[in-house]
Structure formats: structure tokens, C-alpha cells
Design a protein around this nucleic acid. Sequence first.
DNA 1: CCCGAACTTTACCGGAAGTACAGCAATGTC
DNA 2: GACATTGCTGTACTTCCGGTAAAGTTCGGG
Lengths: 210, 210
Amino acid sequence: MSVTTDIPPPRTTTRERILAVAYDAIIEKGFEATSVEEIATAVGISRAGFFYHFPDKNALARALIDAQVVEEGEMLAGIEARAAELSDDPLQQMLIAMRLMAERYHGMPGGYTGCILASAIFQDRLFDAEVKAANQRSQLAFRARFSGKFAAIAALHPPREAVDPDDMADLLNAVITGGIVVSRAIRDPDVLVRQMLLARVMVKAMYTPG
Amino acid sequence: MSVTTDIPPPRTTTRERILAVAYDAIIEKGFEATSVEEIATAVGISRAGFFYHFPDKNALARALIDAQVVEEGEMLAGIEARAAELSDDPLQQMLIAMRLMAERYHGMPGGYTGCILASAIFQDRLFDAEVKAANQRSQLAFRARFSGKFAAIAALHPPREAVDPDDMADLLNAVITGGIVVSRAIRDPDVLVRQMLLARVMVKAMYTPG
DNA sequence: CCCGAACTTTACCGGAAGTACAGCAATGTC
DNA sequence: GACATTGCTGTACTTCCGGTAAAGTTCGGG
């Protein structure tokens, strides 16, 4: 066998560069407003070169969503792990995690995640069934991830009023997503951070006795 | 002067029919995915006829946003008025209003408001500055509407932790908007209603002592 | 030396936005 | 009864974009 230890020039460069360039452009301008030509030019290839890597634009959307789901999953896993290090109590873990999430959102000047996802929702017909399915999976994954946490919290800290842990998870999701929308609409990136922190306070209020 | 009292055949029919048809189509498929031709055909006019009423597609978006801002404003005003009838306490009014809003969202199978607004945010470049400005105004109007309410609530019912009334208003906005996004993504219209009700419970927990 | 991967170039199709303009029918107005 | 305005229709054209097709190029590896 030949020695394969030396790394051949960074694998899959072009495809990944397309993804990176497309991601930035889409965050800034939206999916539909970003043309294939523009992406190709920015990457330094021809339009046909783009279609060599992706059968169509929807395939790009799918790849972007998949990549983001992985990235978001890793980020949340990292935050959860850190929170678990800092406290044994599930409520405290959640509050720590929410603060960490708020901090994470802080340094993102306009470049929020989830835009392609949200975009796909409001531009239904522009995306094929696979894209929408990927989208749905990612939302349900978020619910699954946090539902258990909220159930664990409720077991130790009876809430002031009974709530469904799935709904709590969805609310967290909605606050983040809605926070992004409102932030962008008002053109004030801080809104998202403040939403996150406010949601944290409300979760605390919900699960702590007077 | 001529007698102008007799109403000439219902004024602005065609323009309004365009708006109605476009609204439905955009809710279902998205703004970009809805072609001018399609709208014109559905209305029963030619493509050129459409451009007689609107200089371009952006003008349609603007008109739609304006119409929706008015409609939403009236709906919220109605709900607030009803809540004020039912209770003198600002907290109770808010809780009543949130329940009424949840009920309002209940009978809407997929056809949620705000889609054009949200769509505009994620498809930045497809819309001109006027559309985005209209959007921003509508979000700030929402904040202004509810900020005062939350301030009044806090004055009578000290919250368990100090919160900014503007942030509370934005949170409500974010829950609704995010709820729409999540609902659509998961393909479960009930999510939005449950979010609203859950947010209500959390507001209650926030402003009532143990 | 040839193969396949990763492209390029060129050319083309169809759909959609937007422009321009000529014309036409109905509804008033003078 | 002539005339003008409103609210369109129809046609033709431009530009941009996604997508397809196909032939050619470059280059590294077996």
C-alpha cells in the first residue's frame, strides 16, 4: 500500500467552497435572490461547473440544510455538555444552556443560521419535497433534543402550571426562530439575544416556586 | 356638482381582486413562486392588465403588507377592546387577549398571516427598500402596541424578575412569528395555537407571586 | 498511456419580470 | 355628437435565470 498519510490538497475543496459561498450569499440576500452564476463566479468556476457538483439548485439547498443541521446539533451538544459540567440540576443546566445560546448569538452580525430553513417554509414551491422533509426533520430533532430536558426539569421542579415538554421545546425553537425574524425585520441584531435572555428568565420563573 | 351619491359599480374591484388572489397564492406557494401571469389569469385579466394596476411586483408586495398591517391592527384592537370589557386588570386583559389570539389562530388551516412579511425578510434582495421599511414599521408598531400593556402590568403586578416591556412585546411577536414558522415546518397547525397558550401560561407565571 | 475527475466553452430552451405601445370599449363630460 | 379618460387587451421585445446538452481541456494516478 502506498503511504496515504500525506494529506492530498484539502479534500472536496470546490464543493465545500460552493457551500460556503452560497451560505454567505443566501444569508445576506436570500435563496432565490442568489443566482447560480453569482455563486460560481465567486467560487471561481463556471456555471456549468456548479451543475457538475449539484444537479440543481434544490440540491444545494438540501446540502446547506444538512450541513446546518449537523452544525447546529454539534453546537447544541457542546452547550449541553458544558452545562452538564457546570451543574447537576436539569433546570440549572437549561438556564446555563440558554445563556450560552444567547452568548453564541451575540457575535453574529446579521449572519444567523436558519435562514434557508425559514426561507424554504415561506417559499414552498421553490423547494422540492426532499428539502421540506429535511426541514421538518430538523425541527423535530430540535423538539426531541429539548423535550426530554424539560421533562426532567418538571420532575424535579414542578412547574407553576402543568405544561407539555414538547410544547416547551417548540416554544424555545419558536423564540429563536421568531427572534431571528424580528431581529432582521427591525434591523437590530440585539433583539435575538435579548429574546433568548428573556425566555431564560421566564423559564426560571415557570419552574421556581414563589 | 353632479350627484355622486350613487355608488358606481363597487369601486376598485379589479385591484382588490388582484390583492385577494395574490394573497391566497402567496400564502400557499410563496411570493417568488407566484407569477404575475398566474395572478392575472386567476383574476381574469391579462398580464399587461396587472401592470396597469401595479408598476411592478414589489408594489403588489407593498400593498399586501399595508393591507395586512391594517387588518392585523384591527384584529388586535378588537381583541384588546374585548379584553378590556372583560377585565379591568391589565394582566387579566393580557391573558384574555392571548387566549383570544390563540383562538383566532385556531381556525386557520395553513393560511397564516405574516407570510409575506417573513418572506420579505429572508428574501432580502427580492424586495425594495420600501417593502422592507413597511415591514420594519409593522414590527415596531407591534412592539409599541404591547410595550405599554406590559409596562402597565408590571406596575400592578411586579414581575418575579425585572424585564423590559419592549422585550416582552418583542417576545410575544417572536412567539407568534416563530410559531408560524415551526407550525409550517412541522406541518402541524396546532403548534402555533399551543405556543400561544403556553406563552400565556408563562406570562401568568411571570407576573403572579408564588 | 489511457482513464476518469473536474472542470470550461458554447449553445440552446423555457419561464418570468418588466417595457413599450397601439388599440378598443365603456363611461362619462362638454 | 364629439371627445377624453379609465381600464383594460394584445403583441412584441429585452433581460435574467434555471436547467440541459455536448464537446473539449487539464491533470494526476494506476
